[in-house]
C-alpha cells in the first residue's frame, strides 16, 4: 500500500510540473483528487489493509493529498501570472527611479555632538546645568583662582563688556555657580554645555565656540575616578578600542591638572599628519578641583574632593566627522549642513 502511494506521488508530481495550462491542471486535479480520482480510489481500498496498518496508511494518504493540493495551487498561480503577460508589461514601473523624497532637515553638527555628549553623561548620572554667556569677572576668573593681573589670564584672551563683565571664556564659571547653589549638599555631578568666546580669529580659532564642562564633587572623588570617567567617555564617543593619555598641565582652577589625549582616530595611533605623528590627539583639559575653588564656592576642601573637565565641542566634532576647517561650523553652508542629513 505504501509503495502504491509513493508511485502515485511520483507520477502526480511529474504531471503537475509538466502541466502547461490551467485547464490541463484542472484535469489533473480531478484525475487524482476528484471523487473518482486515483488517490480517492486508493483510499477506498483502505478496508483491505491490515487494521494495525490502517491508521498509518490513512495519515500518509492525507498528507499526500495536502501536499498535492499545495503543489497544484502554486502551479496554478504560476500559470495564471504567465497568462497575463501583457497586463504586467503595461503596468511595469521603473524601479531605478529615485524614491519620493521625504523632506527632512537636520540639526547642526555641533548640536548632534552636544546631544551625544549629554546623552553619555546623563547615562552616567550627571545633571545638565547652564550658566550665562555674559559673565562677571568674578565667576569667569576670580572664583576660579585666576588672580587679577595674573599671566594665567593671558591663556584666554577675553572680549570685555565693561571692566566687570565679559563674554565667558570657558564654561567653567558654571562650576562655581552650581556649587554655590548646592553647597554644602553632596554629591555634585554636572555637565554644563554652552557657548564660549575668546578674542581669537584665524584658521584654527573662532571668536565663538562651544564647550562642555564637567564637575563631580563628593566625599571621595579621586584622580583615578577622573581617568575612568574620561576613558569611558572616549570609548562611547569614538569607539570601544579607544585609549586615553593624561599629561600633566596647568589650569588655575585644578590641581593636579591634565591635558587629555585620545589615541588618534585617523591613523589608529600609527602616526599621521592630524596627530603630528604622535599617535595622540588632545581633546580636553581636566584635573582635581583646586581647594581654593571649592572653598570659595562653599565646600570644605578638607571634607570633599572633586574633579572637573572641559572639552571643546568643535574639536570633537571635527575629529568625529573628519572636518578640516573650523569655519565651516559658522558659515551655515547648506552644502556642509546637508552632509549630516
Amino acid at each position: 500500500m505504501f509503495r502504491k502511494l509513493k508511485e502515485l506521488e511520483n507520477e502526480a508530481c511529474l504531471k503537475i510540473k509538466d502541466a502547461t495550462s490551467i485547464d490541463e491542471l484542472k484535469e489533473i486535479k480531478v484525475s487524482i483528487l476528484g471523487k473518482k480520482g486515483e488517490l480517492t480510489t486508493l483510499l477506498r481500498s483502505l478496508g483491505a489493509v491490515d487494521p494495525e496498518e490502517r491508521p498509518k496508511v490513512g495519515s500518509a494518504a492525507n498528507a499526500l493529498r495536502l501536499e498535492l493540493e499545495k503543489l497544484i495551487l502554486g502551479k496554478e498561480q504560476l500559470l495564471r501570472d504567465a497568462s497575463l503577460g501583457d497586463k504586467w508589461a503595461k503596468e511595469q514601473i521603473d524601479i531605478s527611479l529615485p524614491g519620493r523624497p521625504a523632506a527632512l532637515g537636520q540639526k547642526h553638527p555641533l548640536t548632534l555632538v552636544n546631544d551625544e555628549i549629554k546623552e553619555i553623561f546623563i547615562g552616567l548620572g550627571f545633571q545638565v546645568a547652564h550658566g550665562p554667556e555674559i559673565e562677571s569677572d568674578y565667576y569667569n576668573y576670580e572664583a576660579l583662582n585666576f588672580p587679577a593681573d595674573h599671566p594665567a589670564r593671558d591663556m584666554q584672551d577675553s572680549f570685555y563688556i565693561t571692566t566687570k563683565y565679559l563674554l565667558r571664556t570657558h564654561t567653567s564659571p558654571v562650576q562655581v555657580r552650581v556649587m554655590e547653589k548646592l553647597a554644602p549638599s553632596l554629591p555634585v555631578r554636572i555637565i554644563a554645555p554652552g557657548k564660549v568666546f575668546r578674542r581669537d580669529d584665524d584658521a584654527t580659532h573662532s571668536p565663538m565656540f562651544h564647550q562642555v564642562e564637567g564637575l563631580v564633587v563628593d566625599q571621595e572623588v579621586t584622580f583615578a575616578d577622573l581617568k575612568g570617567t574620561l576613558l569611558l567617555f572616549a570609548r562611547e564617543m569614538f569607539g570601544p578600542e579607544q585609549k586615553i593619555r593624561l599629561r600633566p598641565s596647568f589650569f588655575p582652577f585644578t590641581e593636579p591638572s591634565a591635558e587629555v589625549d585620545i589615541s588618534c582616530i585617523m591613523c589608529a595611533s600609527r602616526g599621521c599628519r592630524v596627530c603630528s605623528n604622535t599617535g595622540w590627539l588632545e581633546i580636553l583639559g581636566a584635573g582635581m578641583v583646586h581647594p581654593r575653588v571649592l572653598e570659595v564656592a562653599g565646600y570644605d576642601p578638607k571634607q570633599v574632593t572633586g574633579y572637573a573637565f572641559g572639552m571643546g565641542v568643535e574639536r570633537i566634532a571635527m575629529l568625529k566627522y573628519g572636518i578640516a576647517d573650523l569655519r565651516l561650523f559658522f558659515t551655515n553652508d547648506l552644502r556642509f549642513l546637508k552632509q549630516f542629513a
Binding site: L124, P187, R189, V216, A224, D225, K227, G228, L231, L232
Partner: peptide
C-alpha cells in the same frame, strides 16, 4: 594611576 568610576548617591 588606575581608572575607576566615581561612586555615590
Amino acid at each position: 594611576v588606575p581608572t575607576t568610576l566615581p561612586h555615590g548617591e
